[in-house]
Amino acid sequence: MHTLKALFLTAVMLWCAACGGQPVDADLKAAREQYSQGYYLQSETGYERYLQRNPQGEFRKEAWNRLLNIALNIKGDLERSVSLLEAMSLEESHDKLERWKIMYQLGDIYMQLGKRSKAVETLEKSLMLAEDMPEQTVKTQLRLARIYRLQGNYDLVMEALNNCAESASTNEDKATCLYELAQSYSLINNWGLVRKALEQLLALDNVDEERRAMATFLLAEAFEYAHDYDKVRSLLESIRETYPNPKVVEARLRALKGQK
């Protein structure tokens, strides 16, 4: 009976090894323990060895993510993080969503490094990966728009944000795109288009109350630019209780006294 049980267990272990579900590699086991105890440099070496020795290992994603966390959040090594993400993107080439996540994060790190052109190039690739994924498309377009704005390229800003609003699958995402669009138009003093974007936003249902209040505040600014002070007062009065900082609204209302 004991012999049959031993043979059965041996057969199971051999089957697991053949299907890739082998017992945890010693390097990986040690790396996990060291990571959980905060010995990150030692665990880094173990995860690296695991990746080198197990090109088809089932825990490679865990190893890559732990190495990235050590590089990015423990060491603050952005250049190393870039190298890891680039390698990860090649390994995840079969999974569009995972590759989008990697490329989106890579674009963010390029921005932290001050490499705006490289960030744009990477995010444009992530935008292609996000096709048929509205949430990821919106996030990428918003990030691209902010970089274009830093570059002073307002044609691309407006194109990205208009596409963002069209791509949005929820009113909340659409409102975010329209608010960013209105803010961008305000930076170039195109107050007519500020009003148009904000009026579209305020016509949407199921939009966060704070977002609606902020949009109303910016719309009041657009009407103030047009010297329509009655409309400004009406808009500001409507958000006395909902604007994130009511004192700002009160100060604006006081400043309007005497304006006709």
Rank of each mutant, 00 (worst) to 15 (best):
E180M: 01
M133D: 01
L202H: 00
K260M: 01
Y50M: 13
E241V: 15
N65Y: 10
V207Q: 00
N171W: 04
E124Q: 10
D208V: 02
K61E: 14
C19Q: 11
Q105T: 05
Q151T: 07
T3A: 14
L144H: 06
S234D: 10
M133C: 02
G20M: 01
A31P: 02
M158P: 02
V120S: 12
Q259C: 12
E241A: 14
G152Q: 07
K125W: 03
C177I: 13
L178C: 06
A251R: 11
M158K: 02
R143C: 03
S93R: 03
Q112E: 09
S81M: 11
E209W: 05
K196G: 04
L85P: 09
S184M: 01
V232Q: 00
W191A: 05
N206D: 04
G258K: 04
L219R: 03
L67E: 02
T10L: 14
E79H: 03
F217S: 04
A220I: 12
A220K: 02
A26I: 03
Q37A: 11
A11M: 15
Y154L: 08
G107A: 01
S83T: 15
K29S: 13
L129S: 05
G152L: 05
K139Q: 06
L90E: 03
N245D: 13
S83V: 12
M13P: 05
K231I: 05
L156C: 08
L67D: 04
K231D: 00
L198Q: 01
T10F: 15
L41Q: 14
A222D: 12
R32D: 04
R49L: 12
N245T: 10
K75G: 13
A165T: 01
G152H: 05
D132N: 11
A6G: 11
L142G: 06
V249S: 02
R32K: 13
Y47L: 10
R240A: 08
P23S: 13
G38D: 13
V232W: 00
R66I: 12
E44K: 14
Y225F: 13
K75D: 15
L67V: 02
V194L: 08
L218P: 03
Y179R: 03
V207P: 00
S169H: 01
H227Y: 12
Q56V: 10
A87Y: 10
E237Q: 08
N153F: 09
R116L: 14
T137F: 00
V248I: 11
P244M: 06
A160W: 03
I109D: 02
H2E: 14
Y225C: 04
S169C: 05
L68S: 12
F8E: 09
S234F: 06
L236E: 03
Y179N: 06
L161S: 00
L161P: 00
V232P: 00
E44S: 13
Q259V: 08
Y104A: 08
N73H: 15
R146K: 10
G76D: 11
S117F: 04
E98C: 00
Y39W: 09
Y39C: 07
K29P: 07
A251T: 07
A168V: 02
L181W: 04
A71E: 11
L51Y: 05
